Amino acid sequence: MTYKTIRRVHAAMRDDIGDLITQRPVPGPQLDQIDPFLFLNHHGPQVYPAGNRGLPFGPHPHRGFETVTFILDGLLAHRDSAGHESIIGPGGVQWMTAGSGLVHAEVSPQEFMQRGGPLEILQLWVNLPPALKMTAPRYTGLQSDQIPVVETPDGKARLHLVAGEYGGATGPFVSLTGVFMSTVEMQAGARLHLGNLLQRNVFLYVVRGIVRVEPDSVTAFHLCEFEPDGDEIEIIAERDSLILLGHAEPIGAPVVAHGPFVMNTREEINEAIRDYQAGRFGAPI
């Protein structure tokens, strides 16, 4: 067994959306994707005042990939053209397969806009292989108490298992492509080991704190890009930390993106635009 090593550490770039604090580590100036992980927006942390306008993500279309949204703090209301609707609170997760196309809105519920409060959200885009680009859309939203928590052997880390298997537990979200996904709370000195990573790309983003992946220290708002070799990693918390941690087999197909559509060719993008304009992405919301 050999450990994966870090090729490069990428800082998140500040790109606020109105009054929503936003930082984005991928895509960035030196990193297009960590196949199949395409995009990550880190919104907040910030505190909204009472009487706020809420999140700005009104109805908009997607095709060809999945969104995984982690509500670290605050409330997030989801509604889409396939009829799904939910309000998810702190610690909850939304997993949406856009597939062949839908329109969704991610906004703040009335309660949050009236009262205000803290907000921090991560949204990750996960690509789909060519054979699944046009799969039927689906959505699952789960609250924090529906997501299993697994402690590491040293008792100093808590892994919130979203998808995949760890420590005898199985995450409640079923990935179409075998993606492992979690958030991990780590006390200073905690150690987390993952194996069976041969030919899988690791996605490691530090939300808070500082972690070490020998010999590198990685601070908050930074994303690790790993070398492809190796089949295990060990993460050590230098301070109390929170990380977003996933891994998956790379797809290796061409990526052609245009705003909210991610396909394999320019013609497929043009077709997505035509279908959306023709109202083929489901019922209006």
Rank of each mutant, 00 (worst) to 15 (best):
I6N: 01
R8F: 07
V9D: 00
H10R: 06
A12D: 04
M13A: 14
R14P: 08
D16K: 10
G18E: 02
L20M: 15
L20P: 07
I21F: 15
R24T: 09
V26N: 03
Q30H: 11
Q33Y: 13
D35P: 11
P36S: 05
P36G: 08
F37E: 10
F37D: 11
Q46I: 13
V47Q: 12
V47E: 15
V47D: 14
Y48S: 03
A50P: 10
G51M: 01
N52G: 01
N52M: 00
R53K: 15
L55I: 15
F57E: 06
G58T: 14
P61E: 09
H62C: 04
G64M: 04
F65M: 11
E66L: 05
E66H: 01
V68P: 09
T69Y: 02
D73Q: 15
A77S: 10
H78W: 09
H78V: 01
D80W: 09
H84E: 09
E85D: 12
I87K: 02
I87S: 02
M96F: 07
S100C: 05
H104R: 05
E106P: 01
P109G: 00
F112Q: 09
Q114M: 09
Q114N: 12
R115E: 13
E120V: 06
I121L: 14
I121R: 06
L122C: 10
Q123W: 14
N127A: 07
L128F: 05
L128T: 05
L128W: 07
P130A: 03
L132N: 07
T135A: 10
T135Q: 11
R138H: 02
Y139H: 08
L142T: 11
L142W: 13
D145C: 03
Q146W: 04
Q146S: 05
I147L: 11
P148A: 13
V150L: 10
P153W: 11
A157T: 06
R158G: 12
H160D: 00
G164I: 13
Y166R: 11
G167D: 08
T170V: 14
G171Q: 10
P172Q: 14
F173S: 10
V174N: 08
T177G: 08
T177E: 13
T177Y: 11
V179M: 04
S182D: 12
T183L: 12
T183K: 03
E185T: 14
E185P: 06
M186E: 00
Q187V: 04
A188M: 04
G189Q: 08
L197K: 15
Q199M: 11
V202M: 08
V202W: 12
F203P: 02
V206M: 00
R208T: 14
R208G: 02
G209D: 02
V211S: 03
V211Q: 01
E214T: 13
D216W: 05
V218C: 00
L223P: 02
C224F: 02
E227H: 09
D229G: 07
G230L: 03
G230P: 02
D231Y: 12
I236Y: 03
E238L: 00
R239M: 05
I243R: 12
H247W: 15
A248R: 04
E249C: 03
E249G: 04
E249Y: 08
P250S: 12
P250N: 08
I251Y: 13
I251G: 07
G252C: 04
G252H: 03
A253G: 10
V255F: 10
H258V: 00
P260N: 06
V262C: 05
I269Q: 09
R274V: 07
Y276F: 15
Q277V: 06
A278Y: 05
A278I: 00
G279Y: 03
R280C: 00
F281Q: 05
G282A: 03
